[in-house]
C-alpha cells in the first residue's frame, strides 16, 4: 500500500507545508490590499466635507495656537480631472473602438498583426514615456503647460485598453447573428453597425469604463503636461489641476491639513476605481462563467 512507502511521512509533510505556503502567499498578498484600502477609507473619510467639494486651494493659515488650518478643498482638482479625462475620452473613443472593430472584423491579415503588436506596445509603455512624448510634442512647441496636452497623453494611454476590450467582446458575438443579418442581405458594414456593435455595446462600455478609471488615476504624464493649478480653471490651453496631482502635491507638504486633503483625494480616486471594477465584474459575471 502506498501509505507504507518508506519516505511517505516526509513527503506528506512537504506536501502539507507547500500547500500551506501557497495559502500563506495569497493571504500575504491580501494584507497590503486590506491595509491600503482601510487606511484610505478611514483617513480619507475625515477629509470629505462640504468644503472639500466646494472650495479650491486656500493658503494655509497658522492659527494662534500654532496649528495650521484652513485647508480649503479640491474643487479645482475635481473639475480639472473631469475636463482632462473627458476630453481624453472623446479623443480615444473613436480610435479605440474603430481600431477594435477592425481587429475583430478583419482579423487575419498582416495589418491586424502589426496593429495588435502596437496596442501591446502602447499598453506596456511606461506612462511617463507617453507623458514625455506629449511634453515634447505640445508643451515644448507652445511653451505652455496645458490641459490639452494632458488629455492627449491620457488618450494615448486609453486607446490600447479600449481597442483590446472591443476586439475581445466583438469576437464573442455569436456567428449565428452575423449569419442572420447576412441572410437578410445586409452588407457587412450595415451588419456590423446595426447587429454586432449594439449586441456588444455593454461589453465595449466596460472597456471604456476601465480605461476611464485607469486614466483618472494616472499621475506621471499629467505632471509633465498639465502641471497643476491652484485655482479653478477651465481654460484648455493653460495649466489645470487634477485629483491625482493634488494627491501627490499634498502628500509632500508639511501641513497636516493638506495631508488630510491628500487622503481625501486618494479616497475619491479609490472609490472610483473600486466602483468601476466592481460594476464591470458584476456586468461580466454571466459571461465569464
Amino acid at each position: 500500500m502506498i501509505t507504507q512507502a518508506t519516505n511517505y511521512r516526509r513527503r506528506k509533510l512537504v506536501d502539507y507545508g507547500m500547500r500551506g505556503l501557497t495559502i500563506g502567499a495569497t493571504v500575504l498578498a491580501l494584507i497590503p490590499l486590506v491595509l491600503i484600502l482601510s487606511y484610505v477609507v478611514f483617513r480619507g473619510a475625515g477629509a470629505l466635507n462640504i468644503a472639500f467639494f466646494t472650495q479650491a486651494y486656500e493658503p494655509p493659515v497658522v492659527g494662534l495656537d500654532g496649528e495650521v488650518g484652513n485647508a480649503g478643498g479640491v474643487l479645482h482638482g475635481i473639475i480639472g480631472s473631469l475636463i482632462i479625462v473627458g476630453i481624453a475620452l472623446i479623443m480615444a473613443l473613436p480610435i479605440g473602438i474603430l481600431a477594435g472593430v477592425f481587429l475583430a472584423e478583419y482579423p487575419s491579415n498582416s495589418v491586424a498583426t502589426v496593429v495588435r503588436f502596437c496596442t501591446d506596445v502602447l499598453s506596456a509603455a511606461p506612462s511617463i514615456v507617453i507623458g514625455v512624448a506629449a511634453y515634447v510634442l505640445i508643451v515644448q512647441r507652445t511653451h505652455q503647460f496645458s490641459a490639452l496636452a494632458g488629455s492627449v497623453a491620457l488618450a494615448v494611454l486609453m486607446v490600447p485598453v479600449i481597442t483590446r476590450t472591443t476586439e475581445e467582446i466583438l469576437k464573442l458575438v455569436p456567428h449565428t447573428m452575423r449569419e442572420a443579418a447576412m441572410a437578410l442581405g445586409a452588407p457587412k458594414w450595415w451588419q456590423t453597425l446595426t447587429v454586432v456593435l449594439p449586441t456588444a455595446m455593454s461589453g465595449i462600455m466596460t472597456g471604456v469604463l476601465l480605461a476611464f478609471a485607469r486614466a483618472t488615476g494616472e499621475t506621471a504624464p499629467l505632471l509633465l503636461t498639465v502641471l497643476g493649478n491652484n485655482n479653478v480653471s477651465v481654460k484648455l490651453l493653460e495649466p489645470m489641476a487634477a485629483l491625482p496631482l493634488l494627491t501627490y502635491k499634498y502628500t509632500d507638504t508639511p501641513f497636516p491639513a493638506q495631508n488630510t486633503l491628500a487622503w481625501g483625494t486618494a479616497l475619491v480616486l479609490t472609490l472610483l476605481v473600486l466602483t468601476v471594477n466592481l460594476s464591470v465584474r458584476w456586468a461580466t459575471r454571466s459571461r465569464t462563467k
Binding site: 495569497t26 498578498a29 491580501l30 497590503p32 490590499l33 491595509l35 491600503i36 487606511y39 484610505v40 483617513r43 478609471a213 485607469r214 483618472t216 488615476g217 494616472e218 499621475t219 506621471a220 491625482p244 494627491t247 501627490y248 502628500t251 509632500d252 495631508n259 491628500a262 487622503w263 486618494a266 480616486l269 479609490t270 476605481v273 473600486l274 471594477n277
Partner: peptide, 19 residues
C-alpha cells in the same frame, strides 16, 4: 481581489508608502 491590487493608482501606493 488580487487583481484589484493592480487597479489602485500608483500615486495612492506612493502616498500610503510615505505616510
Amino acid at each position: 481581489m488580487v487583481e484589484l491590487l493592480a487597479a489602485i493608482p500608483s500615486v495612492i501606493y506612493g502616498m500610503w508608502g510615505v505616510f
